[in-house]
Design a binder for these strands. Structure first.
Lengths: 130, 130
DNA sequence: GTATGTGCAAATGGTTTGCAGTGGG
DNA sequence: CCCACTGCAAACCATTTGCACATAC
């Protein structure tokens, strides 16, 4: 039922956000159970766990290859089609001998609704813009 | 002195790793102070805070634009030259109206020393390989 | 003396875990 | 009856914070 609700949502809920939703159908479920099952589902490859950038982890029912944008203001996330990375000129020694298994790419920005509310500038604190 | 030690190291230490190093020169320094100053230095743009992928945050004295590889086994990190991302065919609506400020790219792999020790396979749990 | 920065210890918050209970097979 | 799974609460761990004190100006 946790999986069902995650698939229904196209937001990328946090564990406790999903907990709130699932609790509407299973009022006696505990947050620990939600965490346990999300972990199992992620390991089984049924869902993806998005634990980037030190924030609260978010979960994604879409297991097709894709990247993400995250709002630096509110933490909301959205899907982005896979952005091709040019590694044509790289040898293994550009990676210091690491055997590369994968990559994680996350765009950072401001979502439409946060953009309206605050005229803030978010210079990304010492981070190159893109 | 925290900054000095971080610049001297080319590993990408965690806060407590750096704490251990700095404590050799300042035996009475506290971990809280290390955190406080790393935060200030990162905000001032003197260092970079690398808090990707839900692990313990790491700090980098190299503020030039570059990406990273992280060992999924031991957490060690290394620098990688900026990998160009092809966004030529993207309009703002591919990003769901997000105003893009930056990106974070992290390669995941196994570092040379972990590679020797364990013949393990690390299929990156339901993650596309790269 | 006033402001800034520190050590220390306690609080925080997301996540994990130990354990006893429960329900399905 | 057994076992996998659960609720619950406590533990965990990186990080942050409150506070009293120290040091520099």
């Amino acid at each position: 039922m946790i999986l069902e609700e995650l698939l229904r949502l196209e937001s990328h809920p946090t564990a406790s956000g999903l907990y709130d939703v699932v609790r509407r159908r299973l009022p006696r479920i505990s947050l620990g159970t939600v965490y346990r099952n999300l972990e199992l589902l992620a390991q089984a490859g049924a869902i993806r766990k998005l634990d980037m950038s030190g924030a609260e982890a978010r979960f994604d029912g879409n297991v097709h290859p894709h990247d993400h944008v995250r709002c630096v203001e509110c933490g909301q996330m959205a899907d982005v089609a896979v952005a091709p990375i040019d590694l044509s000129d790289r040898g293994p020694h550009d990676f210091h001998g690491y055997q590369i298994l994968g990559r994680r790419l996350e765009f950072l920005g401001i979502c439409p609704s946060c953009r309206q509310q605050t005229g803030h500038n978010h210079p990304l604190e010492g981070e190159r813009t893109c």
